[in-house]
């Protein structure tokens, strides 16, 4: 599909902001059009990277769960971690990746909450790994602000 979606979205962002919004008479429509333009630019960014960031997150959470499961005393939680760690993304549709991502994140919340109640070096190490995962994942999802990039 050419021109590339990201390129089209960025171009439309510029057209809406520089040509169309200023020509609108209504203050409300100018504001709304500007917001739509910025979101088109962000959608262009997400189109390019969307599958990759979700696949990476899902893979990293499964790796984290695989490492954590044997040391978790709560047998039910440990079993669920073990099961989740064996999954894989067979569909690369964003909606499918999001569904899996949500299930894994819900389990991550339970694991993190559980680990925070534990003491000892293993718990500290696991807690650090969870924070590191969340930092990296948030950084990968950073949305460049189109006005800052312009």
């Amino acid at each position: 599909m050419t021109p590339h979606v990201t390129n089209v979205m960025q171009t439309f962002f510029g057209t809406l902001m520089a040509q169309i919004a200023p020509a609108l008479g209504s203050e409300y429509l100018i504001g709304s059009t500007s917001v739509i333009a910025m979101m088109m630019s962000m959608a262009g960014t997400e189109y390019e990277r969307g599958a990759e960031v979700r696949v990476m997150e899902n893979r990293e959470m499964r790796t984290l769960f695989a490492a954590a499961a044997p040391g978790i005393g709560d047998s039910a939680l440990s079993r669920r971690l073990e099961e989740a760690s064996g999954g894989e993304d067979t569909s690369l549709r964003i909606s499918d990746l999001d569904r899996t991502n949500a299930a894994l994140k819900q389990l991550l919340i339970e694991l993190h909450s559980h680990v925070e109640e534990l003491e000892g070096p293993d718990a500290t190490d696991l807690d650090r790994r969870i924070w590191a995962f969340m930092r990296n994942a948030a950084e990968r999802r950073k949305l460049p602000h189109p006005l800052a990039a312009a």
């Binding site: 917001v35 910025m38 948030a138 950084e139 999802r141 950073k142 949305l143 602000h145």
Partner: peptide, 23 residues
Amino acid sequence: PVLAFPSWYCTDVHDRFLVNRLS
């Protein structure tokens, strides 16, 4: 649209601020 925008952009900013500051 002003309701959709913060759900993308502001969520991203606050998520990153929180995770870095809290860790």
